[in-house]
Structures are given as C-alpha cells and as structure tokens.
Write a protein that binds this DNA or RNA. Structure first.
Lengths: 147, 147
DNA sequence: TCAATTCGTAATAAATGAAGTTACATGAAG
DNA sequence: CTTCATGTAACTTCATTTATTACGAATTGA
C-alpha cells in the first residue's frame, strides 16, 4: 500500500519557508522534497484555501506563510489536507448484516478509534513553532559537531 | 490507498468456524465474506502456517480451528498475518539528510509510535473467545427482538 | 480404479489512490 | 512584450490489496 505523505510534505515545506526571508517557489520546494513542482502546488493549494499560506505569480512570486507558527497544529494541517484515512488496516465491510461480522467490526473499530483519538490528540499538541524550535536545536548541534 | 482487511477477514472466518461442528470449506467461508475461495485459502494459509487452523483436502475436507479461542489474541493474528503496515499516512523519506525533515519525521514518528503501541496493546487484550462471547450476546439480543 | 470434492499455489488481472508528468492558461514584474 | 511563476485539468506511473483463472495434488466413496 502506498502511504500518504502529504502531511510530512507540507510540514517540511512550511519549516523551510519559515527559515527564509522571501517567498519560496514551487520549484524550490520541489527540489527540497525531490518531487515535481506541480505536486507542491497541488498540496500547498489546500493550505492556501485554508488561509495558512499565500501564493503570488510572476517574478519574485512564490509561497509565503500567512499564519502564526505557534497557532498551527499538526492536527489542523491534517484536517486542512482533508483528513485522509489514517489506517491502512480496516474492516472488510463497514455495515455488515452478519452478526458475526458486527462483533468483529465493533472490536476493531473500538481499538482503532482509541488509537486515532490518541494520535489526533498528540497532533493537536504539536505546533509548527515546536517543530521550528526542534529544528533550531538540531541545527545548533550540527554546527557544534562540524565546528 | 487500499486498506488491508485481512485481519477483519480471518476474525470473521474464525468466528464462523467456531460456531460450527464440522469443517468449513473455502467456498463456504468465501460466501460469508462475499469474496473468492482462493482469497480465503491464501489468507487462512497464513494461519495454518502458524498452527492456528488445519485444512484437509477432499470431500468432508475444509478448515478447522486448532487453537484455544481464549488464548489467541488479535495481536497474535496481526503478527501471524505478517504485521502489515498499520498506518496509511507516513513520512515522505525515512532517513532524510535534511535537518528540517529530520525534525518533521521525529515529531510524526513519535506520535505514530504512541498510537501504534496503544493499538497493539488493545489488540493484545482481545481474544477470539471475547469476540465469540460478544457474538453470543448479539445473537441473544437478536432472537429477543425477533421473538 | 474412477469420479467428485477440496485444498495449494502460481500467474495474471482488476481496482484503488497517491505521486508524478505534461500541457496550457493566467497573472505579475520589469 | 518577455520572462517567471502559479492554477489546473488530464493523463501516466507506481504500489498494494483483492479478485480471478488455471492446473496440480490429495482425499473420499462408489
């Protein structure tokens, strides 16, 4: 199964943008991600629709963050991306007539719901500012090593 | 992304088998699941390799449970099925050189690891006997309603 | 022994959805 | 008006599960 890596992508993009003065073009972002500029436009476009970033055409154009890093959580980004399915494992049929299958679904749904709630709660606690701070620490440590 | 429903399938199959005296053929199981007999053979074959079920060829052949329902947990079945990836969402690159991406991955990996640990812990607490008991309750309630 | 039943398994196709690509239109800077 | 950049539709590629076909092997019972 192919994993959805859009959340990972937009986080990577937003953090690079946060480390920069001017805007970043789709091409620059795509180079960071080793992907295609159109893929970046498509994905970042969802953030633009939510008002988290802005884009501009033409020379000196590109993408800029238009939100407070301390107020944007991973959960919010997950929602902005359309809340894609988190689990790659699931029930065979969603609303089966078979009573046996209903028991199976109830057990699995319960466990998955708990895990999803935990994951989303964690996502709700992590902001872009937290990630930026983590990056600063890693960057400082890296400079230390290469001093 | 296509969801892996094999755990759901084998649970459904095992519970039907538990409700039965004799063996069940791949065709009967496939009819319960609305799928193809070969799919059942393939999936059940993994359980057979782990000693959880037995199969026999020829007339009066089919599949039987060869384990104690109270001792088989959902976690064990998940492992028997090869521990398929639980999440449909993940990192773009697993071991990036980019420090920014390392921060992103660290945050996501932490949250996913917690959620996975919770899910597997829950799976470890649920046995086939629990599901069979839940089915009995549902079945009794169903007979009550249709009395 | 023969016919029917059932599993075992390889090979292949269908289905799904993200990712990648192409093509072209739109808009801004100079 | 040329260049750079986004916007977006259409299409292809890729990965993975599920479904199907085909055929072989084993078992039962007449």
């Amino acid at each position: 199964m192919k994993r959805d890596s859009r959340l990972s992508s937009v986080l990577h993009a937003l953090l690079h943008m946060a480390e920069r003065e001017g805007p970043m073009t789709s091409g620059e972002l795509a180079a960071c991600m080793r992907t295609h500029p159109v893929v970046m436009r498509r994905t970042m476009g969802m953030l633009r629709a939510a008002g988290l970033v802005r884009s501009a055409s033409g020379p000196q154009g590109g993408w800029r963050i238009s939100a407070d890093l301390a107020k944007v959580t991973l959960r919010q980004l997950h929602e902005t991306l359309g809340e894609p399915a988190i689990f790659a494992v699931g029930n065979r049929h969603e609303t089966p007539a078979c009573l046996v299958e209903q028991s199976v679904n109830a057990a699995l749904d319960g466990a998955f719901a708990e895990a999803e709630a935990l994951l989303l709660a964690r996502f709700g606690q992590i902001t872009l500012a937290d990630l930026a701070a983590d990056f600063s620490r890693r960057h400082a440590a890296w400079r230390e090593r290469n001093a």
